[in-house]
Amino acid sequence: MTSDAVNQYAEMDSPVPDAAPESGRPAQTQDAGVRGRRLAGLAERLGVPALLAALMIWFSIARPHTFPTERNLSGILSTEYVLLLVALGGLIPLVCGEFDLSIGYILGFSSMEVAVLSLRHGINVWVAAGITVLTAMVIGVVNALFVLRAHISSFIATLASGTLLSGLTLLISKSTIVTGTLPSSFLNLGNGGFGGVAPGVFIALGVGLILLYGLEHTPVGRRLEAVGQGRDAARLAGVGVDRLVFLSLVMSAGIAGLAGVLNTATQGSADPGVGPSFLLPALAASFLGATTIRPGRFNVVGTILSILLLAVGVNGLSQLGAPQWVRPVFDGGVLLLAVGVTQVRAKRR
């Protein structure tokens, strides 16, 4: 466009009221309105971290000798990092508008695969871990082919492939818990470590950092979001939708595979029944995360904070003597509350 033309358009102002002065309202009132809106927006963005902080303060006051201790806090991290990893994996397809319901089953299968390869077939555990993560990514490729080539919705395709995998898990494990002596270097991934925080925690946070960079600071991440928010428009704007959906499903499967390997390291054995129980809390954390930090968008920081919120809540409540049934009730309640408040606010706007 020539600079002359630019000037022409700059002069062609349309009479749509973007001018405050003629509204007849004092400018101050408008500022107050804008400020109020910003404050409300800030409160919404910081809802989950604020609740997390409040819970930590409450539990610290109520159980000063057992809650705010290094041992307890590093324990919380070390028990929840596998869930965090699965949640981060599942987040990627959610960003581009797809579901991966197979992540829990992939975790279970991978957990079993690394144990079987190393304990029953005598393969070096690190090699086995590598093979396992690659296998998981191949499962992701299969998921993606069903979604993109056979045009099965990802919800159904991954539900089916996950169910199928749970059978394969039973097959390779011969329906028993696989246990034995794994090298301590491997077991240390999930236990002990720096300040009582398992190395696995740092792996999970590292994956989180990579995703944060990839999703929020690269064109690929922005395009992934555009696909999730308006697939048709994104496609017509030149975004390679299929490639991104493929990438997201392969990555979620790969990360779930990694989570499976780490789960075996943490437990020291592989249980064919593990896995499915990770699926719903992981997705719930992603949805809860989408109400905070960047409301309305699935996001990495929100997901991490949500996992922490749920973990701290359950840890503290059990220290206060709450029975076992409290955990799922707490998880579900927080999710309903957070999403509910966000929706009602969005409606009022």
Binding site: R222, A226, Q229, D232, A233
Partner: peptide, 13 residues
């Protein structure tokens, strides 16, 4: 509204 723009993303995006 369906094909031209992504409704829930901002003008910049």
């Amino acid at each position: 509204r369906r094909f031209g723009g992504v409704l829930t993303m901002d003008a910049r995006e």
